[in-house]
Design a protein around this nucleic acid. Structure first.
Lengths: 110, 110
DNA sequence: AAAACCCATCGTAATATTGCGATATGGGTT
DNA sequence: AACCCATATCGCAATATTACGATGGGTTTT
């Protein structure tokens, strides 16, 4: 079917899954790392950096923007992208909480 | 095409993307949370807990096992699953590093 | 041994994702 | 205005994911 049954799960579970999905592609990871490193850049730079077609790069940027983790501002003919620090921290916290909330014993299995 | 061009990216980027993909579904999040809470449990418990069909649940368990984050041991007719603490910590570290390696200034955009 | 149970896998259908060429849009330039 | 440049979006093809019923191989129970 390909249609996730979101109604079976809590908002927190769906939210975390969507956050994970936002970064579940190496191109999007690469975009985020580049933005962190360079602080900000325009689409054309990312097209060069990634080696993907312009249309594909634009699509990944759109997904990251929809996820809220980056923001783009028009600068003449170009669009300048950067990390949204507020959302970035939120991601950081959510993942940290998920992985850290309970300590796992070192040989807990049956 | 639906085929990620993995060769364009580093091993680290592909690895992180795959780790994110492993938890990029609310059912898999729910499975992990349940395993953390209960420490260990058999497939049947998870089928009840999730509300998904047995086949679907088994498929999600397989993906988590392939990702290495859980392990299953046969116990008579049942299979007992639990978190792999070593891999869990690895996930925790990788995500923590990714989100925390560089501090983002609070108004860095153009 | 038969019945009942637990679980993985197969096969299939529906939907989502990835990627790119082509096209559109909106600046800037001459 | 005519012309480039930078991006976004559309439309399409290929592949991946999600979900479930059905089947099959074990294990326990009767």
């Amino acid at each position: 079917m390909g249609l996730t049954k979101s109604d079976l799960f809590t908002k927190e579970q769906n939210d975390l899954a969507n956050m994970a999905k936002a970064i579940a592609h190496p191109a999007r990871i690469a975009i985020l790392q580049y933005l962190v490193k360079k602080n900000a850049c325009v689409t054309g730079d990312l097209v060069e950096e990634l080696g993907l077609a312009q249309a594909t790069t634009s699509q990944h940027l759109k997904e990251l923007k929809n996820a809220g983790i980056i923001q783009g501002t028009v600068e003449g003919a170009s669009v300048c992208y950067c990390i949204d620090p507020k959302v970035w921290k939120q991601y950081k916290n959510v993942f940290h909480t998920f992985f850290g909330e309970v300590k796992i014993e070192d040989s807990s299995c049956c």
